[in-house]
């Protein structure tokens, strides 16, 4: 187990303060239950998300670097944890760019000086995902010891989305064999939920596009992509799709409803953050993990399974 992950800087990002509040709530609750400390990055800003990157990628690099600079230089953390796939991806991308692209370094130096904070230097901090955080601080064995309500009998399809593993070059720690994460066949969520007792079903679309990119510009294609994901999960017997990306999560939830209205296609698989499932397994109440904040109503299913 990695002791340095026991207390980390926490970068929630914008989504976790809004549409993905349940993810933030359950992440914090699980952390407390596991004895892990999260210290929120002070005065954090947007990571640059999708919008800024499309206008100017280097501005996105700067915005992400500022978050890392505060966590590393002002708060003196070695590790920053970002549960949102978009934030996680952007911080990793900024790290890569600042280690490899002198133009990015120049822009970040210029903007950091203007903003009046220390310039982030590549290597000052390690960015991890919530999956890394739990996997490497507690691990499967540690989780098994702490499970109070086993997820036994619950069939789960784990959906990682596109940003957790791509592009591969910004995740040098992955694909290293042993206990490292795989970009081709990610398994950390599978490992953790299986340790909590869940039955993990095969899911060929676990890293496929959720259509989040054009949910506004071409909603029908987004809905069809989501229908495919939901159907693939159901075809393999899943009762729940576990997510770890706010964009994917809200896309699956909203387009599940839209699919019924627009295409008369009904699916019943429930969409839940993996931290919510872990929280229930650790004995937290549905409210503590924010099940009531999801659009997808999974409470009846969890009651039926004796988990709520």
């Amino acid at each position: 187990m990695n002791g340095k992950y026991k207390k980390v800087a926490y970068y929630p990002g914008c989504a976790l303060e809004g549409s993905a509040h349940a993810y933030s709530r359950s992440t914090k609750a699980v952390g407390r239950k596991l004895g892990l400390d999260l210290v929120e990055v002070e005065n954090w800003n947007c990571c640059g998300a999708m919008e800024v990157k499309n206008i100017d990628p280097k501005l996105q690099t700067y915005l992400s670097s500022r978050v890392m600079s505060i966590a590393a230089n002002e708060m003196k953390f070695d590790v920053v944890m970002a549960p949102c796939n978009g934030c996680y991806h952007n911080l990793k991308k900024a790290e890569y760019d600042l280690a490899n692209d002198p133009d990015s370094v120049a822009v970040v130096e210029r903007l950091s000086t203007k903003a009046g904070h220390e310039t982030y230097q590549a290597g000052d901090i390690e960015t991890i995902h919530a999956l890394d955080w739990i996997k490497h601080s507690i691990g499967e064995a540690g989780l098994r010891e702490r499970v109070k309500n086993s997820l036994a009998g619950l069939k789960v399809a784990n959906y990682y989305g596109c940003m957790y593993t791509r592009p591969r070059h910004i995740f040098p720690e992955k694909d290293q064999g042993g206990d490292s994460e795989s970009t081709l066949e990610p398994h950390y969520m599978d490992d953790l939920l299986a340790a909590a007792g869940a039955e993990i079903v095969a899911f060929p679309l676990k890293t496929a596009c959720c259509g989040g990119a054009h949910t506004l510009s071409d909603s029908d294609t987004s809905t069809k992509l989501v229908i495919n994901i939901l159907r693939a999960a159901e075809l393999n017997g899943a009762e729940v799709i576990a997510t770890e990306c706010p964009t994917c999560h809200s896309g699956l939830e909203m387009h599940q409803i839209r699919a019924e209205k627009r295409f008369d296609i009904k699916t019943s698989v429930k969409i839940v953050y993996f931290t919510q499932l872990l929280g229930l397994a650790l004995g937290l109440s549905p409210r503590k993990v924010g099940l009531h904040e999801n659009v997808s109503d999974s409470l009846p299913l969890f009651k039926e399974k004796g988990l709520a």
């Binding site: 999708m50 919008e51 990157k53 499309n54 978009g86 991806h89 596109c162 940003m163 791509r166 060929p204 679309l205 496929a208 596009c209 259509g211 989040g212 990119a213 054009h214 510009s217 071409d218 294609t221 987004s222 069809k224 992509l225 495919n228 994901i229 159907r231 693939a232 075809l235 393999n236 964009t247």
Partner: peptide
């Protein structure tokens, strides 16, 4: 399942042909 996977490929690429940079995390 193979058909769902094939359809996903079709939808992703079809979407990408309409909207440049689709899937480039994200928006276009």
């Amino acid at each position: 399942m193979a058909a769902l996977v094939a359809n996903h490929l079709h939808l992703f690429i079809g979407g990408k042909m309409e909207v440049a940079q689709l899937g480039e995390f994200c928006c276009s």
